[in-house]
Amino acid sequence: MSEGGPEREDDRIRAAEYALGLLAEAEAEAFATRLRDDPELRAEYALWATHLAGLADGDKVTPPARVWQGIETGLFGFAPAAPGRSRWRYWGGWGLGAALAGMLVVLLLYVGPFGPPTVSQAELVAHIEAESGDLRVLAGYDAATGQLEVSRIAGEPAPGRSFELWLIAGDAAPVSLGLLPERARGVLRVPDALGPQMAGATLAISDEPAGGSPTGQPTGAVLAAGQVITAS
């Protein structure tokens, strides 16, 4: 933008029109492209956006709890898996789940808990089990979709508490993968950045306050753990 000239005036108007949403689609796209390469124009847009935000910024109103529940369900798939996306849908509940659990134990005997880690497209599974057997969860990870399907075979959180699932890769601190769904089966979404760390990692379940750990790290007892291994 040149100092003081009509071009600068034009850019000021454009930036304001962009912030107000008054530009036609093609014009808005062209402006957005210019924004990327022109720091002065960005500053001009930021000035308008900041002042205009003040117009919309009224009193705070606490939203009802269902809004956050809706966000979690929408993003992290606490609802049942979408039909047709998964071979896990063939389980048909407990019987097959238990059968697969048995298969996994056999698999563990053959491959060993330190079986060859892989980050290929192969589906990864984990059998997350408490020593007592009171809590048993099967997890299957599809690297292509980033979906982690979980099926709780035994165990329930204490009243007012939640089960939270953690990814522990090597010596790294646990990273939360979210709360286990309240239903026995559901799907969690593993953030893309964590996908490559799944193979060979440990999945663990901790006992947390309802809604999950307030600190981002496990705060309650670790109840069950299991290693992620290749399914085939």
Binding site: A56, D57, G58, D59, K60, V61, T62, P63, V67, W68, I71, F76, V175, S176, L177, G178, P191, D192, A193, L194, G211, G212, S213, P214, T215, G216
Partner: peptide, 26 residues
């Protein structure tokens, strides 16, 4: 941005009332 859900929940606690106010205003 790195997929930290605890941070995301914290962000919601810190800003949702303000942003709900904006949506209601409009």
């Amino acid at each position: 941005a790195m997929g930290d859900r605890a941070a995301f929940a914290g962000l919601y606690r810190a800003t949702s009332a303000k942003l709900f106010g904006v949506a209601l205003r409009i």
